Simulated scan of single mutants.
Amino acid sequence: MKRGRPPGSSAEATRQRLLLAAARYFSSAEYSEVSLQDIAAECGITGAAIYNHFSSKEELFASVAEHMMKVNGKAIQQAIADHTEWRSMLRAVLRLICKDTTGWFRFTLLVPAVQLKMMQKPEKFASLLTLRAVYVDCFRQIVDCAVAAGDLPQATSKAAAAELLLAFTFNGLGAVIAHRTSDEEVAELVHHAAILLGFAKQA
Protein backbone atom coordinates (compact mmCIF):
# COMPACT_ATOMS: atom_id res chain seq x y z
CA MET A 1 0.00 0.00 0.00
CA LYS A 2 1.38 3.37 -1.00
CA ARG A 3 1.91 5.79 1.83
CA GLY A 4 1.76 9.52 1.60
CA ARG A 5 -0.23 12.30 3.14
CA PRO A 6 -3.42 10.77 4.61
CA PRO A 7 -6.55 11.71 2.62
CA GLY A 8 -8.10 14.98 3.71
CA SER A 9 -5.11 16.09 5.77
CA SER A 10 -3.27 19.36 5.29
CA ALA A 11 0.47 19.96 5.31
CA GLU A 12 0.13 21.73 8.67
CA ALA A 13 -1.85 18.84 10.16
CA THR A 14 0.84 16.41 9.00
CA ARG A 15 3.52 18.66 10.47
CA GLN A 16 1.74 18.74 13.83
CA ARG A 17 1.45 14.95 13.84
CA LEU A 18 5.15 14.68 13.09
CA LEU A 19 6.00 17.02 15.96
CA LEU A 20 3.93 15.00 18.40
CA ALA A 21 5.31 11.66 17.22
CA ALA A 22 8.86 13.01 17.34
CA ALA A 23 8.33 14.31 20.87
CA ARG A 24 7.38 10.79 21.97
CA TYR A 25 10.46 9.30 20.37
CA PHE A 26 12.89 11.97 21.57
CA SER A 27 11.55 11.67 25.13
CA SER A 28 11.87 7.89 25.24
CA ALA A 29 15.23 7.24 23.56
CA GLU A 30 18.67 8.76 23.12
CA TYR A 31 18.88 11.34 20.33
CA SER A 32 21.22 9.10 18.31
CA GLU A 33 18.74 6.21 18.53
CA VAL A 34 15.77 8.12 17.14
CA SER A 35 14.95 7.24 13.54
CA LEU A 36 13.18 9.59 11.15
CA GLN A 37 11.87 6.52 9.36
CA ASP A 38 10.10 5.35 12.52
CA ILE A 39 8.59 8.78 13.13
CA ALA A 40 7.38 9.01 9.54
CA ALA A 41 5.91 5.50 9.66
CA GLU A 42 3.93 6.34 12.80
CA CYS A 43 2.39 9.28 10.95
CA GLY A 44 1.58 7.20 7.89
CA ILE A 45 4.02 8.85 5.51
CA THR A 46 7.21 7.69 3.80
CA GLY A 47 10.64 8.41 5.18
CA ALA A 48 11.34 10.63 2.19
CA ALA A 49 8.12 12.62 2.71
CA ILE A 50 9.27 13.78 6.13
CA TYR A 51 11.82 15.97 4.35
CA ASN A 52 8.97 18.00 2.90
CA HIS A 53 8.55 19.34 6.44
CA PHE A 54 11.99 19.10 8.08
CA SER A 55 15.39 19.11 6.40
CA SER A 56 17.11 16.97 9.05
CA LYS A 57 16.69 15.21 12.35
CA GLU A 58 18.33 18.16 14.08
CA GLU A 59 15.79 20.56 12.56
CA LEU A 60 12.95 18.27 13.62
CA PHE A 61 14.32 18.08 17.16
CA ALA A 62 14.69 21.86 17.33
CA SER A 63 11.14 22.31 16.02
CA VAL A 64 9.76 19.89 18.61
CA ALA A 65 11.62 21.67 21.40
CA GLU A 66 10.55 25.11 20.16
CA HIS A 67 6.89 24.09 19.90
CA MET A 68 6.92 22.53 23.37
CA MET A 69 8.62 25.52 24.96
CA LYS A 70 6.31 28.05 23.27
CA VAL A 71 3.09 26.24 24.20
CA ASN A 72 4.13 25.46 27.77
CA GLY A 73 5.77 28.84 28.34
CA LYS A 74 2.59 30.65 27.34
CA ALA A 75 0.56 28.42 29.68
CA ILE A 76 2.88 29.21 32.58
CA GLN A 77 2.69 32.94 31.89
CA GLN A 78 -1.09 32.81 31.90
CA ALA A 79 -1.21 30.66 35.03
CA ILE A 80 0.91 32.95 37.19
CA ALA A 81 -0.83 36.06 35.84
CA ASP A 82 -3.97 34.90 37.65
CA HIS A 83 -2.25 35.12 41.06
CA THR A 84 -0.44 37.73 43.12
CA GLU A 85 0.87 35.53 45.94
CA TRP A 86 3.99 33.47 45.26
CA ARG A 87 2.69 30.25 46.81
CA SER A 88 -0.40 30.32 44.62
CA MET A 89 1.72 31.13 41.57
CA LEU A 90 4.06 28.20 42.14
CA ARG A 91 1.23 25.80 42.92
CA ALA A 92 -0.45 26.85 39.65
CA VAL A 93 2.73 25.95 37.75
CA LEU A 94 2.97 22.58 39.48
CA ARG A 95 -0.63 21.82 38.57
CA LEU A 96 -0.03 22.73 34.94
CA ILE A 97 2.84 20.27 34.73
CA CYS A 98 1.16 17.47 36.62
CA LYS A 99 -2.19 17.73 34.86
CA ASP A 100 -0.49 18.22 31.48
CA THR A 101 -3.00 20.88 30.54
CA THR A 102 -1.35 21.64 27.19
CA GLY A 103 -0.60 18.07 26.16
CA TRP A 104 3.09 18.99 25.99
CA PHE A 105 4.08 18.82 29.64
CA ARG A 106 4.03 15.01 29.45
CA PHE A 107 7.39 14.89 27.71
CA THR A 108 9.35 15.41 30.92
CA LEU A 109 12.34 13.37 29.77
CA LEU A 110 12.65 15.54 26.67
CA VAL A 111 13.55 18.54 28.84
CA PRO A 112 17.09 17.40 29.78
CA ALA A 113 17.75 16.44 26.14
CA VAL A 114 16.79 19.96 25.07
CA GLN A 115 18.98 21.49 27.77
CA LEU A 116 21.93 19.38 26.63
CA LYS A 117 21.51 20.51 23.03
CA MET A 118 21.34 24.15 24.10
CA MET A 119 24.63 23.75 25.96
CA GLN A 120 26.34 21.79 23.18
CA LYS A 121 25.29 24.01 20.29
CA PRO A 122 24.12 27.39 21.64
CA GLU A 123 24.53 29.03 18.23
CA LYS A 124 22.21 26.53 16.53
CA PHE A 125 19.66 26.59 19.32
CA ALA A 126 19.65 30.32 20.05
CA SER A 127 15.87 30.48 19.60
CA LEU A 128 15.47 27.89 22.36
CA LEU A 129 17.66 29.93 24.69
CA THR A 130 15.39 32.91 24.02
CA LEU A 131 12.32 30.81 24.85
CA ARG A 132 14.00 29.51 27.99
CA ALA A 133 14.37 33.11 29.13
CA VAL A 134 10.55 33.29 29.23
CA TYR A 135 10.52 30.42 31.72
CA VAL A 136 13.24 32.03 33.82
CA ASP A 137 11.31 35.31 33.86
CA CYS A 138 8.18 33.51 35.13
CA PHE A 139 10.10 31.95 37.99
CA ARG A 140 11.83 35.26 38.66
CA GLN A 141 8.37 36.78 39.19
CA ILE A 142 7.61 34.07 41.75
CA VAL A 143 10.89 34.76 43.57
CA ASP A 144 10.24 38.53 43.47
CA CYS A 145 6.87 37.99 45.14
CA ALA A 146 8.43 35.74 47.79
CA VAL A 147 11.05 38.37 48.60
CA ALA A 148 8.43 41.14 48.68
CA ALA A 149 6.33 39.04 51.08
CA GLY A 150 9.31 38.60 53.41
CA ASP A 151 9.44 34.85 52.84
CA LEU A 152 12.88 35.10 51.27
CA PRO A 153 15.68 37.42 52.48
CA GLN A 154 16.10 40.74 50.68
CA ALA A 155 19.69 39.68 49.94
CA THR A 156 18.49 36.66 47.95
CA SER A 157 20.07 36.38 44.51
CA LYS A 158 16.83 36.49 42.56
CA ALA A 159 18.43 35.33 39.32
CA ALA A 160 20.01 32.29 40.98
CA ALA A 161 16.86 31.48 42.96
CA ALA A 162 14.76 31.61 39.79
CA GLU A 163 17.14 29.23 38.00
CA LEU A 164 17.10 26.81 40.95
CA LEU A 165 13.32 26.86 41.18
CA LEU A 166 13.03 26.28 37.45
CA ALA A 167 15.44 23.33 37.64
CA PHE A 168 13.63 21.80 40.60
CA THR A 169 10.27 22.09 38.90
CA PHE A 170 11.13 20.80 35.43
CA ASN A 171 14.07 18.50 36.08
CA GLY A 172 13.35 17.22 39.55
CA LEU A 173 9.58 17.03 39.66
CA GLY A 174 9.28 16.22 35.98
CA ALA A 175 11.60 13.23 36.15
CA VAL A 176 9.71 11.79 39.11
CA ILE A 177 6.30 12.31 37.51
CA ALA A 178 7.47 10.42 34.44
CA HIS A 179 7.40 7.24 36.53
CA ARG A 180 3.90 7.75 37.89
CA THR A 181 0.77 6.60 36.10
CA SER A 182 -2.23 7.47 38.26
CA ASP A 183 -3.79 10.86 38.97
CA GLU A 184 -3.68 10.05 42.68
CA GLU A 185 0.07 9.50 42.63
CA VAL A 186 0.65 12.71 40.71
CA ALA A 187 -1.57 14.70 43.09
CA GLU A 188 0.39 13.28 46.01
CA LEU A 189 3.65 14.35 44.38
CA VAL A 190 2.36 17.90 43.98
CA HIS A 191 1.48 17.98 47.66
CA HIS A 192 4.90 16.66 48.67
CA ALA A 193 6.60 19.19 46.40
CA ALA A 194 4.56 21.94 48.07
CA ILE A 195 5.73 20.73 51.49
CA LEU A 196 9.37 20.62 50.39
CA LEU A 197 9.09 24.12 48.97
CA GLY A 198 7.61 25.35 52.21
CA PHE A 199 4.16 26.50 51.13
CA ALA A 200 2.13 23.61 52.48
CA LYS A 201 2.04 21.77 55.79
CA GLN A 202 2.22 18.05 56.31
CA ALA A 203 -1.17 16.59 57.18
Rank of each mutant, 00 (worst) to 15 (best):
R91I: 12
I76Y: 10
S55N: 09
L116Y: 12
S63E: 06
S35T: 05
A193R: 12
M69V: 00
Y31E: 05
I45Q: 04
E58A: 12
T156I: 09
S9Q: 12
V34K: 01
P112S: 14
S127K: 10
A146I: 05
L197V: 01
P153C: 04
R180D: 00
M69W: 09
V136N: 11
H67I: 10
G150F: 02
F168D: 06
T108W: 08
E163P: 09
P153G: 04
K74G: 04
I97K: 06
A13W: 10
P122D: 06
R5L: 14
H179M: 11
R132Q: 13
L131N: 02
I142C: 03
A194Q: 07
P122Y: 13
E185Q: 10
R132Y: 01
F54V: 00
P6N: 08
T101G: 08
A40H: 00
L165N: 03
A13L: 09
T46C: 15
F61V: 15
L19G: 04
S127E: 07
E85G: 02
A81S: 03
L152M: 12
V93E: 06
E59C: 01
S88C: 02
A22T: 08
A21H: 05
A200W: 03
P122Q: 11
H191Y: 09
V134G: 13
G73T: 00
A161G: 10
K117D: 04
A75D: 12
L164D: 01
V34L: 00
E66W: 04
A11Y: 08
L94H: 12
R3F: 15
G172C: 11
L60N: 14
V71F: 00
V186A: 13
L18T: 14
L197Q: 04
E184D: 07
V93M: 01
Q202H: 04
R106C: 12
R140V: 10
A178M: 05
K74L: 04
D82A: 13
L165V: 01
I177R: 06
H53L: 09
F125L: 02
N52T: 14
F107W: 14
R91Y: 14
S9F: 14
L129H: 07
I80G: 11
V176T: 13
R5W: 13
A175K: 11
A160S: 06
Q78L: 15
R91G: 02
S127I: 05
V34F: 02
K121H: 11
V143D: 15
A175H: 03
I195R: 14
A178F: 12
A81K: 09
Q202V: 02
E42C: 02
H67S: 06
Q154L: 07
L131V: 05
A148D: 07
D82W: 07
Q154N: 12
Y135N: 05
Y25I: 01
L19E: 01
G47H: 09
R24E: 11
